[in-house]
């Protein structure tokens, strides 16, 4: 149903030759897709299945990809749709563990705001310099990965459904079996934590 949502791969000019004939590139791509899918689905085997299907789907529609970036954009768009489909099908999945987690996460905000709801002095968000440059820096992505892995599982999953797979609120609520207000609370916390982690470890580092 969502097969057609893949955007046209942009035809960037490149002198890399066909990326499909580069085994090392394909290997890395596969690993990256697997990591992405595993975080989403919480299950390595399901993730592997989704990656397989996405790759087969991509290869079936082989076009002339002018570069690796174009191929990657295309393959990830397909993978995102596969993951979204799995998540939508998994509506009746309740995990007691996650309910326990949700409970414990209730104390999160006390570490950031005082009793009147104002930022604690050391927690006030600062101005971020050079956000555009970070995206092109591989060291930044290591920090980003680490910050994402630091989020409680539930928060990371919901955040990724929203911001990576770009599901709408009602789709996430159905897939994760949560209410809209629960979703909003979870996203709020995930964003607070993630921004704090990125700020402390990248954007506003002590020199």
């Amino acid at each position: 149903m969502s097969e057609n949502a893949a955007p046209d791969a942009d035809q960037t000019s490149g002198s890399e030759g066909s990326p499909l004939s580069d085994e090392q590139f394909l290997q890395e791509l596969r690993q990256q897709m697997h990591r992405f899918a595993t975080l989403q689905l919480g299950d390595s085997q399901l993730a592997e299945d989704a990656v397989q299907e996405a790759l087969i789907g991509a290869l079936k529609n082989v076009r002339t990809f002018a570069g690796r970036a174009a191929l990657k954009t295309w393959v990830f768009a397909i993978l995102k749709n596969k993951i979204a489909d799995v998540l939508r099908q998994r509506q009746r999945f309740v995990d007691a563990d996650q309910l326990l987690h949700a409970d414990r996460e209730g104390h999160d905000l006390d570490e950031l705001f005082d009793r009147r709801g104002h930022w604690l002095k050391d927690e006030r968000p600062a101005h971020w310099e050079d956000t555009e440059a970070a995206i092109h820096d591989k060291h930044f992505w290591r920090v980003f990965d680490a910050c994402l892995n630091h989020l409680p599982v539930r928060q990371a999953q919901v955040f990724m459904m929203r911001e990576f797979i770009e599901l709408e609120s009602h789709e996430i609520c159905a897939a994760a079996e949560i209410t809209v207000s629960n979703l909003n609370v979870t996203l709020h916390r995930a964003r607070l934590r993630l921004r704090e982690c990125l700020e402390n470890n990248w954007f506003v580092r002590e020199a």
């Binding site: 791509l29 990256q32 990657k72 092109h136 930044f140 911001e163 990576f164």
Partner: peptide, 17 residues
């Protein structure tokens, strides 16, 4: 954050230098 997350999903991490 949104911009970063979408770049990540589109493979920016592996194109970065």
């Amino acid at each position: 954050l949104r911009q970063i997350a979408r770049s990540y999903a589109h493979g920016a991490a592996d194109r970065a230098e």
